[in-house]
């Protein structure tokens, strides 16, 4: 079983890296769906001695939410809300990949000295989850459109989910909280669509945004 988990871990990191190298937003969404599908399969490999109901529920929840629902809504939005289809990177794609590779190396190096409670299911789980989180973050930092911000957040969240899988049996409610995060993101996406946020989030002079944020003093 560990082989399967290792394979899916590597696939998840690889897909995150691919996202970093993709130029069209529709492509990124599709890759994200694939990544989430791989992630959703992972709980099936967790217990060598047969499946529990919780494994199945978590796996199905992830697949339904992240492989079907979120990409579908995003693609629908791309088609109907006249969003532009290419990303607007701050740094070039090549540079992004170099940074991404450095981040993965760093994550592996860091996770050498991190020790998790309980018996590790797979040695790759921790460094891969760390890499995915950081790669998601990199997407958020270096891409400027609202949709790419959300996608970066989703990738980061996939990384968090992978991390919580490694604590599946130790910390009971952690994964369920992760699924709550998904629902939060879903609401987030709705807000983008409803408000037609196309380019970026708030980028006005500080004085203007302050008066919007609160009215005290």
């Amino acid at each position: 079983m560990t082989t399967w988990i290792d394979a899916s871990c590597i696939l998840i990191v690889f897909l995150a890296l691919t996202m970093l190298a993709t130029y069209r937003i529709v492509g990124i969404i599709k890759i994200f769906a694939a990544q989430s599908f791989v992630l959703g399969l992972t709980p099936f490999f967790l217990h060598a001695d047969g499946l529990t109901i919780r494994d199945i529920v978590i796996a199905m929840g992830t697949i339904v939410l992240k492989t079907a629902f979120v990409p579908f809504v995003l693609l629908w939005a791309m088609r109907h809300v006249s969003m532009r289809s290419e990303i607007k990177p701050i740094i070039g794609l090549g540079t992004s990949i170099v940074f991404g590779a450095m981040i993965i190396a760093g994550a592996f190096w860091v996770s050498l000295s991190l020790h998790l409670p309980g018996k590790p299911i797979s040695d790759l789980m921790l460094p891969c989850s760390l890499s995915t989180v950081l790669l998601g973050f990199l997407i958020m930092v270096t891409r400027t459109r609202a949709v790419t911000q959300v996608l970066g957040y989703l990738v980061m969240e996939n990384g968090i989910f992978l991390f919580t899988l490694s604590l599946f049996d130790v910390m009971p409610t952690l994964i369920e909280m992760g699924i709550l995060l998904d629902i939060f993101v879903a609401v987030f996406i709705m807000a983008i669509i409803v408000n037609h946020i196309n380019d970026e989030f708030e980028r006005s002079p500080a004085s203007v945004s302050r008066s919007k944020m609160g009215e005290a003093f």
């Binding site: 860091v110 973050f137 930092v141 891409r143 911000q149 970026e200 980028r203 006005s204 945004s209």
Partner: peptide
Amino acid sequence: RHTQWYLMYIFLFLIFLLA
């Protein structure tokens, strides 16, 4: 005033914490 800059501060701080 870019959102990305603020995100980058968080990112760098995260990396700093890991290091």
